[in-house]
Design a protein around this nucleic acid. Structure first.
Lengths: 383, 383
DNA sequence: TTGTATGCGTTATCAT
DNA sequence: ATGATAACGCATACAA
C-alpha cells in the first residue's frame, strides 16, 4: 500500500491536476491505491499516475503552448540548432522534463528524409557467430544515433527478398548483408539507389560492394596442411552448400592444400553438407561407410562438426578416433581431449570493422569500394 | 564486358530513356561498361542501370502523374481500400511495377499514427536462448506486418533506460522485455501510456503486466530432489545475480527442495555468481576449497555451468567427479558421458506464446493481464 | 467511382 | 533571437 510518508516526489500528477503528495491523507492514499488495483510503493505509484496518457501523445505544439513560445523554438532547443537565448532554453527544457515529452522520431524522419536506420539481414539469428557480429555493429550504430532493423532469412532467398523489400520501404540508409547467395539484382538495385550496402562474411562475385569477410581459402589451406603434416593422407572434406561463398572458398582452399601437397583428389572423400548439424552426421556416416575411410576430417563449419561427433557417438566410434579440423568456434572444444582443432573466427572484430566502415559511409565517405579481409587462426588441440 | 548478345532483357532503361539492348552496338556496350567501371555481365548491368535513382525516391505523386489519376486513387490501390475500378487498378499496379515504386513506410506511419513496430529488449543478443525466443516472435510479427526493434542491454540498467527512451521515441506499439531488473518506473510509465508490455523470461513483482516465463521454482526444486535421490547430501548451489527474477526463483526453488528433504541449509555451499562463465569457474574453486566440498552441484544457468567444467579442468579434476544439474541447454551435454543433467528450457515455445499474445494485444485484446508459465523438463544424463 | 484538400509531428526557410 | 509557415509522403473525409 502507498504510505504518504514514503513519497519521494512532491506532487502527484493526476487527472484532477497536481496533488502535493506529502500532504496526502491516508484516505487519499487508499484511493490512489485502488486506482488500478495493484499494490505498489508510493514512488512507483506516483509515476504510474503521472505518466498516464502523457508519454507518447504530446507534441511539440503542446510544449510550445505550455512554455509560451513557438514550435520553432522548441525544435531549436531539441536540436541545439540556431539561436535561442539561455533563459528560454532552460525554461523549455524544464517544461519538456516536467511533461515528460519525447519527440516523435517518425515525424522527424519524414521531415528530414533520413530514417537513421540501417538494415541488417542475416541467415540465422540464433547463431552466435552472426550475433556477435551484429552486436558489435549495433553498439557502434547506437552511439551514432542509428538503429538496426534485423531480419533473419533462415538461408532462404525468398525470405531474403521479402526482407529487402521491407527494408527499402522503411527507407534504410544502409544495408548490412550476409546473403543467401540469391537476389543479386535486387541487391545491386539497392546499392544503385544510393543505399550503402556492406557485405559481411559472404561475398558476391561481380557485385562491386564493400565487403568484410574472412580469408577462407587461406585458412582452409592451412587446415589441410596441418593434417598432412600430421601424416594424414586420406582426408575427408565436408563442405557446405556451394551457393554460399564461404562454402565455395573453404572447399577451394582445401583442394589447393591437397594439390600443393601432391595428394590426388579423391572424389569419394568430398561430401557436401548444408551447414546443418544433421548434414554433418550424415556426411560422417557416408565417409565411414567407404571401403577405405578417412583418418582425418576437414569440416567447413561448426554445426556440421557437431553433427560429425554426434555421428561418431551413434556409430560407437571413440570421439578421438578421427582427427578433425573445423571452421568456427566450438565452445566445447576447450573441454575435449579429443583430436579437434578449430579455425577460430573473429565475429566481434568483423562487427567492429563493419561498424566503422558503416559510420564512415553514412558520413558521406564515397571513396573506392573496400574489401577487408580477416585471417582466422588455426588453433590446434592440446594433446 | 557486356556483350550485346548476352542480354536477356529487351531494353536498357537509361537516363536517355529506353534503349533496345538487342540492337546495341559493341561500341554502345563499351560505353555502358564504362558507366561505373565494373566488369559484369549484361543482365546485371542492365538492372544496375535500370534501378539507378528510381527505387526509394519515387512518391505517390509520381505514380499518380504517370498513371494519369489522383494520388487518392493510388493510395486506394496500395491499400485495397475504398472503391476503385478494375481497369484503373490494373493500370496503376502496372505503373507501380514498371517504375518499381515502393511506398514510404515512414510517411505512412506518421499519417496513420501507427508505427507497426515492436520493441524487444534483451540482456544478451549473442545468447541463443534469447535469440530463439526472438526468432519465434519475429516470425510471427513479420507475418502480421509488424517489425521488431532489437536492443541489447548487456544486463546494464542504464543501457536499458536508454533503450526504452529510444524505443518510445520510435513510437513502438508494444514492448517485449527481458529486463535487467531496473527501470521499473519507466516500464510502468510505458505501459500506462498505452504501449502493450509483455515481460518474457523475467518477472517484475508489483508490476501488473503480461508475463511469459518458466516455472523456475518448480524446476529447481525438482533438480535438488533428483540429486537427493541420488544420495547426495552436500549439494553446492551456484546462484545468479539476485536482481534478476530467474536467479531469485532458482535459488528459492533449490532451498525449498533442500528444506522439504530435511537437509539443513549450509551457507558455505551457496555461492552467488553473475550468470557469466568466469563466475562459474570462480564458484567452483570456492566450493572445492571448502573443508568438506560438495559431491554435487546445482547451477542456475548454462554459462556458469560451462565455467564450472572449465574450473574442474583447471583443478585437474575428472569431469565426472562431481554430479551436476544445470539450468539451460548445454549443447555439448549430448557428447558428454559426464554426470551432467540439464533442465531443458523451451525458448522457441516461449517465443511462440509471446508472439501470439502480442498479436492478440495489438489486435485490441484488452482482457485481463496474462501470466503464462512453462515448465522446463529435467533431462538426466544417460549413464 | 474518382478527385480535392487537409493534416499527421516535425524541421527549415523566411520574415520580423 | 524568435515566430509564422511551408513542406516531407501519405491516407482519408468530403465533394463531385
Amino acid at each position: 500500500m502507498l504510505k504518504h510518508d514514503q513519497s519521494l516526489y512532491f506532487y502527484l500528477f493526476t487527472r484532477r491536476g497536481f496533488v502535493p503528495a506529502r500532504t496526502l491523507t491516508n484516505q487519499a492514499c487508499a484511493i490512489y491505491n485502488e486506482y488500478d488495483n495493484v499494490n505498489i510503493c508510493g514512488v512507483i505509484r506516483l509515476i504510474l499516475i503521472k505518466e498516464e496518457s502523457a508519454l507518447t501523445k504530446l507534441t511539440i505544439k503542446d510544449i510550445a503552448k505550455e512554455a509560451g513560445v513557438s514550435t520553432a523554438t522548441i525544435s531549436r532547443v531539441l536540436n541545439n540548432s540556431g539561436y535561442v537565448s539561455n533563459d528560454i532554453k532552460q525554461h523549455v527544457m524544464e517544461v519538456i522534463r516536467k511533461l515528460n515529452y519525447q519527440p516523435n522520431a517518425i515525424a522527424r524522419s519524414l521531415k528530414q528524409e533520413k530514417s537513421r536506420s540501417v538494415g541488417i539481414v542475416l541467415p540465422d539469428m540464433t547463431n552466435p557467430y552472426f550475433m556477435n557480429i551484429a552486436r558489435a555493429i549495433q553498439h557502434r550504430c547506437f552511439q551514432e544515433g542509428y538503429h538496426l532493423l534485423f531480419v533473419d532469412t533462415e538461408e532462404n532467398p525468398d525470405k531474403e527478398k521479402e526482407a529487402l523489400d521491407f527494408l527499402t520501404e522503411k527507407r534504410i540508409e544502409a544495408l548490412i548483408l550476409a546473403g543467401t547467395g540469391g537476389n543479386r539484382e535486387q541487391i545491386q538495385a539497392i546499392s544503385g539507389a544510393g543505399i550503402r550496402v556492406i557485405l559481411v562474411d559472404r561475398r558476391y562475385s561481380n557485385l562491386k560492394l564493400d565487403t568484410v569477410a574472412e580469408d577462407n581459402i587461406y585458412a582452409s589451406k592451412a587446415a589441410i596442411e596441418y593434417l598432412i603434416e600430421k601424416n594424414h593422407r586420406r582426408i575427408g572434406i565436408i563442405g557446405g552448400p556451394q551457393s554460399i561463398s564461404t562454402a565455395r572458398e573453404r572447399r577451394q582452399g582445401a583442394m589447393i592444400g591437397l594439390e600443393e601437397a601432391g595428394i590426388a583428389l579423391a572424389p569419394e572423400l568430398m561430401v557436401e553438407g548444408d551447414y546443418t548439424r544433421d548434414s554433418g552426421t550424415d556426411a560422417l556416416r557416408r565417409l565411414m561407410a567407404l571401403p577405405e575411410p578417412p583418418t582425418a576430417i576437414f569440416s567447413a563449419n561448426n554445426e556440421m562438426t557437431f553433427g560429425v561427433y554426434l555421428g561418431m557417438q551413434q556409430l560407437g566410434l571413440p570421439l578421438d578416433s578421427i582427427e578433425v579440423v573445423s571452421f568456427g568456434n566450438l565452445e566445447f572444444s576447450s573441454l575435449f581431449r579429443h583430436k579437434l582443432s578449430v579455425i577460430m573466427q573473429n565475429p566481434h572484430d568483423i562487427g567492429e570493422i563493419v561498424g566503422d566502415l558503416l559510420i564512415r559511409r553514412l558520413g558521406g565517405d564515397d571513396s573506392e569500394t573496400e574489401n577487408q579481409v580477416l585471417v582466422p587462426k588455426l588453433v590446434p588441440y592440446e594433446a
